[in-house]
């Protein structure tokens, strides 16, 4: 049994199944997140500017959008997926495979992204927006030159969280014939009782998550000028010195 299990894992590696799985997971995740941002970012901006104290309050629109976004977010992904597969059929002519999976991921991620963007933009100081208004900035200028740049670090953090969430969803790809590490774990590991395959998939997924997380956070920190960079650097230096001394 042990020997057989090992050989299956080795086979999976040898035939580049694992490598392909990693690649499929990454590209499904990144592509769907990116497209989700294409829709979610404007949606988040609309949510911010149409709210009660926003730049251009439109209460009915804000409430309607908010309701739709919440409705989508309250479905577990697996239900959403089953419910919306017909859309995939209508759009790309199939209910299965990576293409269908990506469409499902986009549908699930867009409302999530919209809320992420909304909460990042909400962090922008109202006073700064007011200052821009006092200088005669148009609403469009305020979005492009105040909201987005000022919220940049927070938006990046949001993108990291969104990407990781989508990565989690993508593990369910196997259910509808999509590829990726999730599928490998289910078909080879779970259904054929090879725990080691499951653990290898989990390990690779964890590594991918970690890379996205660390890379994204590093970028966010690098781009954030709110922190006192001088004092932070000198603090680091000091603590390093202390360590050396001790």
């Amino acid at each position: 049994m042990q020997l057989l299990a090992n050989s299956i894992l080795i086979q999976l590696f040898d035939q580049n199944v694992i490598l392909l799985g990693i690649w499929e997971t990454i590209y499904m995740t990144v592509l769907s997140t990116a497209i989700a941002y294409l829709f979610g970012l404007p949606l988040g901006i609309v949510l911010i500017i149409t709210e009660k104290d926003g730049l251009h309050p439109i209460p009915w629109l804000n409430k309607t959008l908010g309701f739709v976004v919440n409705a989508f977010r309250s479905f577990p992904f697996i239900i959403l997926m089953v419910a919306f597969l017909p859309i995939s059929k209508a759009l790309i002519g199939t209910r299965s495979g990576n293409g269908a999976m990506i469409i499902m991921l986009i549908i699930a991620a867009t409302p999530y992204v919209a809320r992420m963007v909304e909460s990042s933009l909400k962090e922008v100081d109202k006073g700064v927006v007011e200052a821009a208004r006092s200088m005669g900035a148009s609403n469009f200028q305020i979005i492009c030159k105040v909201y987005l740049p000022e919220a940049k670090p927070s938006l990046i953090v949001g993108a990291v969280i969104s990407t990781i969430t989508v990565l989690g969803y993508s593990a369910m790809a196997g259910e509808i014939g999509g590829g990726g590490l999730g599928k490998i774990a289910i078909t080879y590991g779970y259904q054929r009782f090879h725990d080691d395959v499951i653990w290898v998939c989990v390990a690779f997924t964890a590594v991918i998550v970690e890379l996205i997380q660390e890379g994204g956070m590093l970028l966010a920190r690098k781009l954030d000028h709110r922190v006192r960079q001088n004092s932070k650097k000198s603090k680091n230096k000091k603590s390093i010195c202390k360590e050396k001394i001790s």
């Binding site: 100081d125 006073g127 007011e130 200052a131 006092s134 000022e150």
Partner: peptide
């Protein structure tokens, strides 16, 4: 509004812009 400058108790500077970029901001607008 461009003919009426305004300053605030909380300064309301753009935190992600340098000093010169802050001063340049209304000129960009």
């Amino acid at each position: 509004r461009r003919n009426i400058g305004m300053i605030f108790q909380g300064f309301n500077l753009l935190e992600q812009r340098t000093v010169e970029a802050n001063v340049r901001f209304p000129l960009e607008l």
